[in-house]
């Protein structure tokens, strides 16, 4: 079954038509990578999936096969089921690492503190930061911050993870440690949609690669086909630009 699906997804910002009818479907356990030029609507697409942005009237977003109706459904509950990781981490600077991870489970789901902490410690282990639970975000490197942010999202036990250029703000030498965590998650069967410019990673980890430009999906294929013999001219041009940069 599809964990998440969109049908005829449109999004305007005022007069600006950013998403022009996007249909995607992500199956359970699938890793979908979205690439495309800056400004093509990749972030907006991710943000419409968890309703951080409200899709235009007439668009449909389905979670576990059910159409989400913003007027009727509790969107907070919908967002609980989708973890999101941002380019700029957005850790909570007034909370230490472990509290960054426990604050949502405790306050949103009512998980008892002890249990929330135990889960947080397991997650910190998983992202390779078992000794950082008492650290403050301001004391961490970018790569460490992003790994805490991933742990924080995972703590809500989401059905799907959304990654928006999670390595773009990192120093080059810190990219690998974050990608490794994402790759481990993929290997563990997590369903995910990831916007990235890391083509090597896309080729290695993705089940499917989607090319977006100007608010529409240009083409989508398995990594082998996508990178080996892209069908569309725009994809070839884009790949030419990023691969030779």
């Amino acid at each position: 079954m599809n964990v998440i699906e969109t049908r005829n997804l449109h999004k305007h910002f005022g007069d600006l038509h950013v998403l022009k009818g996007v249909d995607i479907a992500v199956a359970e356990g699938e890793v979908v990578v979205i690439i495309g030029p800056s400004g093509s609507g990749k972030s907006t697409l991710l943000r419409c999936l968890n309703f951080l942005e409200m899709p235009d009237e007439g668009s449909e977003v389905l979670l576990d096969g059910e159409v989400i109706d913003p007027a009727r459904d509790n969107l907070d509950k919908v967002r609980e089921k989708m973890g999101m990781v941002f380019q700029h981490f957005h850790l909570f600077p007034h909370k230490n690492v472990i509290d960054n991870i426990t604050i949502a489970p405790e306050n949103v789901k009512g998980v008892p503190r002890k249990q929330a902490k135990a889960t947080a410690r397991e997650l910190l282990e998983k992202v390779g930061l078992p000794d950082k639970e008492k650290a403050w975000p301001s004391q961490l490197s970018g790569g460490q911050k992003q790994r805490v942010a991933i742990a924080r999202a995972l703590a809500m036990d989401p059905e799907i993870m959304l990654f928006d250029e999670v390595t773009s703000a990192l120093d080059p030498e810190l990219v690998a440690e974050v990608l490794q965590v994402v790759q481990d998650l993929a290997a563990a069967g997590m369903t995910m949609v990831m916007v990235t410019h890391e083509m090597g990673f896309a080729r290695e980890v993705a089940d499917r690669v989607i090319m977006m430009d100007d608010g529409i999906i240009i083409e989508q294929a398995t990594p082998d086909r996508f990178f080996g013999s892209p069908a569309e001219e725009r994809t070839r041009t884009f790949l030419g630009q990023v691969l030779h940069a």
């Binding site: 968890n50 951080l52 967002r79 609980e80 999101m84 941002f86 957005h90 909570f92 949502a104 942010a149």
Partner: peptide
């Protein structure tokens, strides 16, 4: 930073 609010909302708050 508005990102703080968005991160919180994305966690179901």
């Amino acid at each position: 930073d508005h990102g703080q609010h968005e991160a919180a909302r994305s966690l179901g708050m």
